[in-house]
Design a protein around this nucleic acid. Structure first.
Lengths: 324, 324
DNA sequence: CCTGTCATG
DNA sequence: CATGTCAGG
């Protein structure tokens, strides 16, 4: 094939200058896939240049696998407030979006994606305008899985909550965990969902390491939200939800990348309610995560919360990995 | 009582300067009803000063009874786009609003009306957020009627479409005639409504002259809309609706004040669709009317369409009457 | 196209 | 409080 070329899809506003920068960082020829050549699978074409990086920032810049996760709270509203330019300058390789709240065709149009040549995948809700996840990839995944098997005929929120891309070295699981809703009226369903999702991840992990990216609708620890004591009975911080998340992490030995790197950091949130100017006062929750199989620990370069980037009540987060 | 005073309610932004101007025009003392004195009934306190008026504009300015009609297409949205200041500077005595789409308390709050002393009346729809009419009066009506009697147990659109104020010399009937809706699916109901409404007006007219003010949801003549030929099968310009309106006017000998004064005027509309910039191109319909009993013909001073005043897809219209 | 409702977050 | 739907105009 093209061992020194790094062919990637150009969409959602990735510019020629962006690719130029990427080419320098990765010391490869980077080209947009403008012709109809097949997009290569991940990583064989991305030799690590990490050894040359001096600073922590430089390490992030040369990292050869980056996953962006963002709950955009409605793509069409998002596109009226923001563009992809700002976040795309950080050159993610895989983009995981949650709550697109949109149908397929509109998604592609809204993102400026060329349907014929792009690697854009989405899983929409049966009920219109709800949930919806999308996975956009600059490389062609080996396989894409829509949803996951539910037990005992359960279907609640099964659709439009999970989409999984299989690459050569790992699965990227884009998850939007169902909200327990007001008065916790969906708590039971949510916990049942968690059980099945855990089983799905376990299944995947028997084959390859997994990266779970997305809005897990749960703050793990007291330091993961501004008002822990106030919120023990609110969706996202009940004993049951936290226990369920801990259970998943324990059973699969998953690493919460942000807490792994910054175990004590406080005030680090990814979601702020729209009400009462919570964001400007940094009254928030950490609901968005990268959970990694232990096998990927050595590849971790870093993680960033882009708290100043707007357009949604969640901020985008990026995982920086490097494979030698 | 106070034969030389003109006591009127001060609400919805009628300012002291506005009242000053009114006092000069009407040659009376005009005062806001700030104390708890009863608001007098109409007209005995408003001696005509029409004889002193030179120009047509001056005649309108000194006219001693003015009725404003405005379909505001949702009061709460309206209040975000406009205030009452502009239209209030024209000093209406009675204000007829259609499509308030709001509940009573909110109405009063939104208008800055003092519940205790005001003459504000409204008739709301049983189904929330639909229709709704309000009648605001600077003088105390003798009586207020809500809705009108329907025949044979008909109830469709009976609520929130008509409110009537009885004054010493006339009834002011604030009407929001039901729309025939897409595909004319409500046409039959609308025509049945028209029949009952006609009966109601006939009944009133046996007692006193009537002023029907409001959105009659019908363009009378070919010159009352930009594209008459295109719209023969569209709600508001079907043969049946036009015939029904003509029938009402004939049977009751009602005068369409605007056409009475400007029989040939074209391009005179009161409604423009929100779609495709219709208003800026003056592609519109005349749907809002003042229909007057013949007995009031001699009192007519004029009528105005305030086409430049925004905040709704309908413009406000004002009837100027003068009683000697 | 723009107003309301309502369910979800 | 903000984003969707849907019915109404």
């Amino acid at each position: 094939e093209h061992p020194h070329k790094h062919r990637r899809l150009a969409f959602i506003d990735e510019s020629a200058e962006d690719r130029e920068r990427l080419a320098q960082d990765r010391r490869v020829e980077v080209e947009a896939n403008v012709d109809e050549a097949p997009i290569p699978h991940l990583l064989p074409l991305c030799p690590s240049t990490l050894a040359t990086a001096q600073s922590q920032e430089a390490k992030l810049r040369v990292s050869n696998f980056r996953v962006l996760s963002w709950n955009i709270a409605g793509l069409s509203a998002f596109l009226q407030k923001n563009t992809w330019r700002e976040i795309n300058a950080y050159l993610p390789d895989v983009i995981c979006l949650q709550e697109t709240k949109i149908q397929s065709n509109e998604l592609l149009e809204g993102l400026g994606v060329d349907v014929g040549t792009s690697c854009a995948y989405w899983h929409q809700s049966v009920v219109k305008g709800h949930a919806g996840v999308a996975l956009l990839s600059k490389f062609k995944p080996i396989n894409v899985l829509y949803g996951f098997p539910r037990s005992n005929g359960r279907t609640f929120s099964e659709k439009g909550h999970v989409i999984t891309a299989e690459y050569d070295r790992m699965f990227v699981v884009n998850a939007y965990v169902p909200n327990s809703s007001m008065k916790l009226k969906n708590l039971e369903e949510r916990l049942a969902w968690d059980v099945d999702f855990r089983g799905f991840l376990a299944e995947l992990q028997t084959r390859k390491p997994v990266i779970v990216a997305g809005d897990l609708n749960c703050a793990r620890l007291d330091i993961d939200l501004t008002y822990p004591t106030k919120n023990h009975k609110n969706p996202g911080f009940t004993e049951q939800e936290r226990h369920s998340l801990a259970h998943t992490m324990d059973e699969l030995r998953l690493i919460d990348v942000y807490r792994h790197i910054y175990p004590e950091e406080t005030g680090a949130y990814t979601f702020w309610s729209n009400r009462s100017n919570a964001r400007s006062k940094n009254i928030g929750w950490r609901l968005d995560y990268f959970l990694l199989s232990t096998a990927l620990r050595e590849s971790i370069c870093g993680v960033k919360h882009f708290t100043t980037i707007g357009g949604s009540d969640h901020c985008p987060i990026m995982l920086y990995l490097n494979f030698p």
